[in-house]
Structure formats: C-alpha cells, structure tokens
C-alpha cells in the first residue's frame, strides 16, 4: 500500500464540503418539517377515516416505502415537470421528494402513536367536558408527540443521511461536494475519510442532542 495520505487539497476545497453539509442539513430539516405535516394530517385522518380513505392512505405509505428513493428522486425531477408542465430547480425537487418520502414513514409513526395514547386519558378528557376537538388538541396530540419523539429523531437522522441521494440531480450537498473533490483532485481516500467523519460527527451529534430533548419530554 504505497498510498500516502495528503489532506492539503481537501482543506483547500473544504468550503465545498462545509457548504455541502449545511445544505444537507437544510434539506433534511425542510423535508422533515413538511413530512411531519403530511404525516400528522394523514395519520389523524386515517384513525377516523372510512375504508376508502384508509385504503388510499395505506397505498401511499406502502408504495413509497417499497420503491427506491433514488427512483423517486429521478421521477420527480426528470419525469414530472414535462408531464405536468411544471418547472422547478433541483433542490426544490429534492425537498418535495424527500418530504413525500418521509411523510410516508411518519404516517405510520404517528398512526401507531395516536393508537398508543391510553383510552383512560381520552375518557378523562370527556369526563371534564372537553369537546372532541379539545380532546384531540389538548390530550391526544401532546401525548402522541411525546410517545413518537424517539421515532421522529431516528427518522430525522436517517433523512439527513438520505440527503446524499440529492447528489444524483446535482444538488451541491455534502456527497456532491465529496464527488466534486474526488473528480477534481483525485485525493479520493482523503476526501471520503473526511466526509465519512463529517457525516458521523453530525449524525451522532444530532442524535445525542435529540436524545437530550426526548429526555426532557419523556412520558412518565
């Protein structure tokens, strides 16, 4: 192994990686935010919906979960604009894709969360005279959010890693930055070592921080 590590070129182009990391985080945050809205709305609808609506929501969830993310990314970026006569840039397209993608996973998370709220709590809400909407917003929703926090954290971390797929439509996030340096400097091993470290530190750092947040809100 006559390979000598030389990180100089990596540091010279580090702004590509740093900017890429920031963009990765932005993509992940935006996507999970929209995904949470999709998930909450559909899960809430699902638990009170009739058979047809349930089948439709179920089909969305199953379809997204069983198709590769990269295909969805291509489909939304290359397939939809022409067919629907739309125009959007790559980052927008990716955020839309990852939102729909995370939404499908979060419907399941929220649905099981809603079903895990103890009946007794809802009865207690009834007993003190809360209306159905009040019971939902003040009793069921807050408890459900607390129950689902760990799953939300995990989903967020895995979305952060999934943002690497945005590189295939030239969104300049972290993996794209790595590829750019790879092809322009050929310090291949170095750039991937650095990028691996960046993903690990960010991912586990976030996970650690989120676990602290969870502990504050844990259901007793």
């Amino acid at each position: 192994m006559g390979y000598h590590l030389n990180f100089n070129l990596i540091w010279r182009h580090f702004d590509k990686l740093w900017g890429g990391l920031i963009l990765s985080l932005e993509l992940a945050v935006l996507s999970i935010a929209i995904g949470i809205v999709i998930g909450l709305v559909l899960a809430t609808w699902y638990v009170s919906a009739g058979r047809v609506a349930r089948a439709v929501i179920g089909a969305y969830v199953e379809f997204i979960r069983n198709v590769p993310l990269i295909l969805l990314v291509y489909l939304v970026f290359y397939g939809l604009p022409k067919a629907l006569n739309l125009a959007y840039d790559a980052p927008t397209s990716f955020v839309a894709t990852l939102s729909i993608y995370s939404g499908a996973y979060l419907v399941e998370v929220f649905r099981s969360g809603l079903e895990a709220v103890p009946r007794g709590q809802l009865d207690a809400g009834k007993a003190i005279g809360l209306t159905p909407w009040q019971r939902f917003f003040h009793v069921r929703l807050p408890t459900m959010i607390r129950i689902t926090l760990p799953a939300l954290s995990n989903t967020f971390i895995s979305l952060f890693k999934d943002t690497s797929v945005a590189s295939v439509i030239a969104v300049p996030e972290l993996t794209y930055g790595a590829q750019w340096i790879n092809f322009n400097t050929f310090r291949i091993v170095e750039v991937y070592l650095v990028v691996t470290a960046m993903y690990l530190v960010t991912g586990y750092g976030l996970l650690f921080a989120l676990r602290l947040v969870e502990r504050r809100f844990r259901v007793r």
């Binding site: 192994m1 006559g2 390979y3 890693k161 999934d162 943002t163 690497s164 797929v165 590189s167 993996t175 790595a178 590829q179 790879n182 050929f186 291949i188 091993v189 991937y192 990028v195 691996t196 993903y199 690990l200 991912g203 586990y204």
Partner: peptide, 19 residues
C-alpha cells in the same frame, strides 16, 4: 452512521487508490 451512497463511492473510487 454514513449514507450508503458515500459507502458505495468510497469502496468504488477509494479502494483502487490503495491498490
């Protein structure tokens, strides 16, 4: 802890560099 894509690129482009 790392994206699969990074792992794929690392193995494909990185391993030849170390022979």
């Amino acid at each position: 802890g790392i994206p699969i894509l990074v792992l794929i690129f690392f193995v494909y482009y990185g391993l030849p560099a170390i022979g």
